[in-house]
């Protein structure tokens, strides 16, 4: 009998998962439809690009510079065990541009932006502001969701580009100032090994991550219920689900780019 109960619990969890996935896919479909259909709220989209992009620069920049610096130190120490300490510049730039730049910037934005979107839209939901938008003949998907999706999708690649440059500079500073490497040689090694495909694959990842970050913020905020506690739960859910999806899609896209 206990075995059947256990199976019933597994079944319920699985059905709840399918239901949530279905809701999310329908929400994403509706959001995509409103992305391409007028009217477009250009001013709000630009405002969101500033909020998401410009105001995230310090946190993304700090993350990138320390990651690049730590990477250089670790590769030097680890690489010295098999005489590969001379490859610090190459490993730093490829790691930052292909992997760490997009993923770390996206995870930082999941914490900063996805939570802010979920809290803002969630508060609007529980205070009936979204209902008020509708009664004023304004579609909340066009007014609230679409501008944030466009802004995050366009802005994160730009942020990642900045993070890549700052991350490489972090590696450069650690290598030249701490490890005593030659500055000119370091930069030459960096530029020699870097290929356009490394940059484009990283930026493509960033665009997808940006979309996921805004989607999770909007989805959980839009569906929040039950006052302050509901908004709090929506904020947490947005950050957690955005982070998990970033890591999942990072694997899927990396696998795709390799193949």
């Amino acid at each position: 009998m206990n075995g059947w109960n256990f199976l019933a619990i597994i079944g319920r969890i699985f059905l709840a998962f399918l239901q949530s996935t279905g809701h999310l896919v329908l929400f994403a479909g509706q959001a995509l439809r409103h992305l391409v259909l007028p009217p477009f709220f250009v001013r709000i989209t630009v405002q969101q690009m500033l909020r998401i992009g410009y105001f995230s620069l310090p946190v993304v920049g700090l993350t990138a510079i320390f990651t690049g610096a730590v990477l250089a130190l670790q590769i030097y120490v680890g690489g010295s065990r098999f005489n590969a300490e001379g490859f610090v510049a190459q490993v730093v730039v490829i790691s930052m541009v292909r992997e760490l730049g997009p993923v770390l910037a996206a995870l930082m934005l999941a914490g900063r932006v996805s939570s802010a979107i979920a809290a803002e839209i969630g508060t609007m939901r529980v205070t009936e502001q979204i209902d008020a938008l509708t009664t004023l003949a304004t579609n909340p998907f066009k007014y609230l969701v679409a501008p944030r999706l466009i802004a995050a999708t366009l802005t994160l690649p730009l942020l990642v580009l900045v993070a890549d440059i700052i991350g490489v500079m972090g590696g450069y500073l650690a290598s030249t100032q701490r490890l005593g490497m030659n500055a000119g040689l370091y930069m030459k090694s960096t530029l020699d090994v870097l290929e356009m495909e490394d940059v484009t694959s990283g930026l493509t990842k960033a665009a997808v991550f940006g979309f996921l970050i805004a989607l999770m913020g909007c989805y959980h905020g839009y569906n929040s219920r039950g006052g302050a506690q509901g908004v709090g739960a929506a904020t947490t859910d947005a950050v957690v689900s955005a982070s998990i999806l970033i890591l999942l899609f990072n694997y899927i896209m990396t696998d795709f780019f390799f193949s």
């Binding site: 205070t127 009936e128 502001q129 209902d131 008020a132 938008l133 009664t135 004023l136 003949a137």
Partner: peptide
């Protein structure tokens, strides 16, 4: 065709008072 006064007023807190009042005129 419709206007609605909500229980908690449901004013948009990201906008000023006049922008709230003018919202339907500008958007709809």
């Amino acid at each position: 065709k419709a206007g609605m006064l909500f229980q908690g007023a449901a004013l948009f807190d990201s906008m000023t008072v006049w922008q709230n009042v003018a919202f339907g005129l500008i958007q709809a």
